[in-house]
Design a protein around this nucleic acid. Sequence first.
DNA 1: TATATAGTACTTCGTATGTAGTGGTTGCAA
DNA 2: TTGCAACCACTACATACGAAGTACTATATA
Lengths: 191, 191
Amino acid sequence: MAHNPERRTALVDAAIEVLARQGARGLTFRAVDAEAGVPKGTASNYFTSRDDLIGQVARHIHVRLGPDAQELEAAENAPRTRDALPAVLTALYQRVTRERTGYLALLELRLEATRRPEVREILTEAIRANLQRDIDYHLASGRPGDDTTVVVLYLSLSWLIVEDLTLPGVLADYPPEHMVKVLTGLLVPPD
Amino acid sequence: MAHNPERRTALVDAAIEVLARQGARGLTFRAVDAEAGVPKGTASNYFTSRDDLIGQVARHIHVRLGPDAQELEAAENAPRTRDALPAVLTALYQRVTRERTGYLALLELRLEATRRPEVREILTEAIRANLQRDIDYHLASGRPGDDTTVVVLYLSLSWLIVEDLTLPGVLADYPPEHMVKVLTGLLVPPD
DNA sequence: TATATAGTACTTCGTATGTAGTGGTTGCAA
DNA sequence: TTGCAACCACTACATACGAAGTACTATATA
């Protein structure tokens, strides 16, 4: 069993791409090899089994979930008024469209979680932590609304993203920018 | 090619179960045969290819999406006040937990839609129609709120359902009944 | 009796997998 | 500096698994 950490990471990243593009059905060692541009058989040398590979993907994908350092800093420095909310949400939305494959892979993993307790535990922990961080941040920022405000935002935006990624035609009459405005109006009522 | 319509429907239903329980990876003719309790090779006789099978599943699954006749009637007769909203939403939620496999299969199909234009078209049309029906019904009922109210509900409840089906631990502190109340309070402000 | 479908069994095919074997590189010690 | 040892990249192969489809038989119904 080989242990080159960079190569291992590259293989996991390649597996995420494969998951998003070909679905769980297409996730094979050979497909990962091809995606990573390494010789056939390499993934066999780095993961004991397909399950092992999926577990490592679940552990690794959370780094693609959260905002990057730059984005966190921008949010930190933004004015703490309701007017800032649309900008934050728009930034989130842009990140999603950038990380399209990452979010699709995460959806595949969620479905995998219904079948594999190990994946369920890993993802639950990672996503809970992300949500809690958002709630804490929001409460500490002094912006209007309580923890359920953040949860409602999480719910709405999550499905807005799914709809956009999978069946963009469904909400053609209700584009994301519009729905973000609607949500802002609902959650942050005028004084 | 055999044409027994009941058997064909049974096979499609079985395919939905397989999709939900084993994922897209497990959807093979043989698995469908086993799930439907028919001899091996039967699915081969009813569908020209795996693609064909998936297409027919996409066309058929919309009958599991909407409320059944009984539920529609109950909604029709319910008092048209804001107080009725939680009851309607609770009914929806109960249907979802009943039709667990159907909703999981639909999620699988959504991911399949990112790869198959045919599936994308079929699902987009069916889900658009469902949403439009909900919007029309809501507007005609004279309940408070406009079309975006319904869309926000659709977004929030959809992800609430996904979270519950895939990673129920994430929102352990925010159970569905509570979030339904929160949403009601947001969307239907007191007079 | 004829036709269509149910059911059985077999053959073929594709492809994933894991490993054995080879070559090259790096690090360490003499 | 040179030689050796360990490790990893890479190639190629042999195996195995399971899906698919089809040919064949049985059965029921019109």
